[in-house]
Design a protein around this nucleic acid. Sequence first.
DNA 1: ATTCTTATTGCAAATGGTTCTCAATAAGCA
DNA 2: TGCTTATTGAGAACCATTTGCAATAAGAAT
Lengths: 130, 130
Amino acid sequence: MQQTRQTKQRKIILEKLRKVHTHPTAEEIFQMVLPLLPKVSLATIYRNLEFLEKQGEILKLEHKNNESKNRYDGHTEPHRHLICKKCGEIVDISCCCCCQMNKKDLAKYGFTVDDGFIEILGLCKKCSHK
Amino acid sequence: MQQTRQTKQRKIILEKLRKVHTHPTAEEIFQMVLPLLPKVSLATIYRNLEFLEKQGEILKLEHKNNESKNRYDGHTEPHRHLICKKCGEIVDISCCCCCQMNKKDLAKYGFTVDDGFIEILGLCKKCSHK
DNA sequence: ATTCTTATTGCAAATGGTTCTCAATAAGCA
DNA sequence: TGCTTATTGAGAACCATTTGCAATAAGAAT
Ligand SMILES: [Mn+2]
Ligand SMILES: [Mn+2]
Ligand SMILES: [Zn+2]
Ligand SMILES: [Zn+2]
């Protein structure tokens, strides 16, 4: 396998992403790192996000709910996402005992489930009141 | 509100989608109806899928896992989807007691959850053996 | 330190699923 | 049977993401 290099771009992208508790898009991450990397390209953001996801350093949320943009998560500890079908808001919730139950149930189907990858789509408080 | 018309296209798209137990893409649905609607346009497929989803007649699966295409489900009875992170395979599973538990847990967050919209991402049998 | 290899970058163009525009068609009420 | 207008077909537009390529720079070798 080929060597990997620790670039300024890669380092800063990961740092910024870990610092926030939101789930920004590639474009938003681009804006976040711009002050530190004035010449960075959006393609570099995409390439590094892909790299970091493959390394297991970040999560890629591929549910295009409201909009068609992917979102990224710098926090990889097991948790679930509530995604509002209407406004797209993403809420982190910690894993409950349910996960274990699911895993057992899912074994029947030969499915291996990572707790981090259960997404629950519904309506957020604000949206369900309209 | 404006009236809706029952067109040949809309009728056939829904019929075909209900008949299969897979989760086809717009393009695949286009191919499915082509024998019956030789002049149909892909735009018409998209427009009707959007219409039917808004009516609650079908489900739109917006998880672009492997590929970036949406998939559609003609079966709206409550069930969950197992989606393979690797090959993209989608498996239907019936709702277990878990759903109820989730709902209670989720009330804390002010989230309204539709059982049909819990997607579980993992690895299918085939892919987890590689 | 300096050289060298090649992973990575910035820029621009390409890609591809989906949406939009608009004139023509046809569903279905009067 | 006419009339209104929702819907269609064809193609262009959109836009998030990916890719090609020459220039740059990480970091191993010297
Ligand atoms: Mn999260
Ligand atoms: Mn299904
Ligand atoms: Zn909302
Ligand atoms: Zn698989």
